[in-house]
Write a protein that binds this DNA or RNA. Structure first.
Length: 370
DNA sequence: GAACCGTGGAC
DNA sequence: TGTCCAAGGTT
């Protein structure tokens, strides 16, 4: 590819960004002073594999509660996990807190301004390091995320499937990134990918790069980037134990710090396994022996690499007995929980009322049984 | 390198 | 109702 053509990409892209950039809470408009690195970092961590609309309320909540990196570093990690509940990928919250402590205590509150320095911090990988360096410090770092991969794969008609194409795309990103305004360039490429150069039905007629785009010229833009086929998603099963105190509070426990939903609160349940549970079997995993009653309906939750089908048993307990059980008691409506746990609580008797998440039910199957 | 790690919106 | 896939990082 000729060097002139690579260099020709930045100018039209930046001109488009100046006119059509999205206005976002963590972004300063082109030409304005740079956004505070703390905010850029916070937004970038939240935006990892997460959509803009999902992030906006969390970003506001975090910033209001912890206005500086020192405030965040001083918070108990449990508070951070709780504030993160519902956003997913909970290792991010743990690393967020670890990173805040490192910056606050070791670096006196100043984020590194280089890619190498940023890469040392927990939760910051190649993408995030480049994004922070470019956006918060105006360094000429080559940013590569899913959006930019797609735009580059199309403009340069990269037919190698992802993730094999990654090294090739990294080279292209480095080649097209300008020395000036690298942050605006990265954000412009991401905006373009989010609004015009979308995964399906790209709106090539409105694209500022249309004349440069080889995939468009060949009529294969929508087919790129190619991607290796995904593995099928297995189904697992569990029975949740909805143990309710006389005042309505339910029993919750803290999950181990690593792995799935690490460090978050959970509703006690049987192990999650490939085959459905019989009630008689499940009772062996109950927090205590009592008169468990089957809850009506069932719920399903889809994780990245498996789906979970959830049935539930409901039990009642008085305050005296409740005090002897390990865990904590919270009102189901008020608890800050991962979505899958909220779905379990949605199986409580009367759980469909008052805006609780309703269990999924299959009417046909539910009535087939005599 | 491959597997693991959440959630919700778009189509 | 299912598939895709987001401003990815860690192990």
């Amino acid at each position: 590819m000729p060097k002139s053509r690579r260099a020709a990409l930045a100018a039209p892209l930046l001109a488009w960004y100046d006119r059509h950039h999205r206005s976002l809470p963590w972004r300063s408009p082109p030409g304005a002073p740079l956004m505070e690195p703390y905010r850029v970092w916070l937004s970038e961590i939240m935006l990892q594999q997460t959509t803009v609309p999902a992030v906006i309320p969390y970003f506001g909540k975090f910033l209001a509660r912890w206005p500086s990196v020192h405030d965040l570093a001083a918070a108990p990690v449990e508070d951070v996990m709780e504030a993160w509940a519902g956003l997913g990928y909970y290792a991010r919250a743990r690393n967020l807190h670890k990173c805040a402590k490192a910056v606050s205590e070791r670096l006196d509150g100043a984020f590194p301004d280089s890619v190498e320095g940023l890469l040392e911090l927990p939760g910051i990988g190649a993408y995030t390091a480049a994004a922070i360096a470019a956006i918060a410090f105006d360094k000429p770092a080559a940013v590569l995320d899913g959006n930019i991969e797609r735009v580059l794969a199309r403009v340069f008609a990269v037919e190698t499937p992802l993730p094999q194409a990654k090294p090739e795309l990294r080279q292209l990103a480095a080649a097209v990134t300008p020395q000036e305004r690298a942050g605006d360039f990265a954000q412009g490429m991401m905006d373009l990918g989010a609004t015009i150069c979308t995964p399906k039905n790209p709106d090539c007629l409105l694209c500022p790069l249309q004349k440069l785009c080889t995939a468009h010229k060949r009529g294969i833009a929508a087919a790129l980037p190619r991607r290796a086929a995904r593995a099928a998603r297995p189904v697992r099963h569990t029975i949740a134990f909805l143990l309710q105190r006389a005042d309505g509070a339910v029993l919750l426990r803290r999950r181990p710090p690593k792995g799935l939903l690490g460090g978050m609160l959970e509703v006690p349940s049987t192990p999650w396994r490939d085959t459905p549970w019989r009630t008689s079997e499940a009772l062996g995993h109950a927090p205590l022996a009592l008169d468990w009653q089957p809850a009506e309906g069932e719920a399903e939750h889809v994780f990245t690499h498996f789906a979970l089908k959830i049935a539930a048993l409901h039990g009642r307990i008085n305050a005296r007995a409740a005090a002897k059980i390990d865990g904590q008691w919270q009102q189901p409506r008020a608890a800050a929980l991962p979505t899958v746990m909220k779905k379990m609580l949605g199986l409580l008797p009367g759980g469909s009322e008052g805006g609780a998440i309703r269990s999924t039910r299959n009417p046909r199957r539910g009535r087939a049984r005599p």
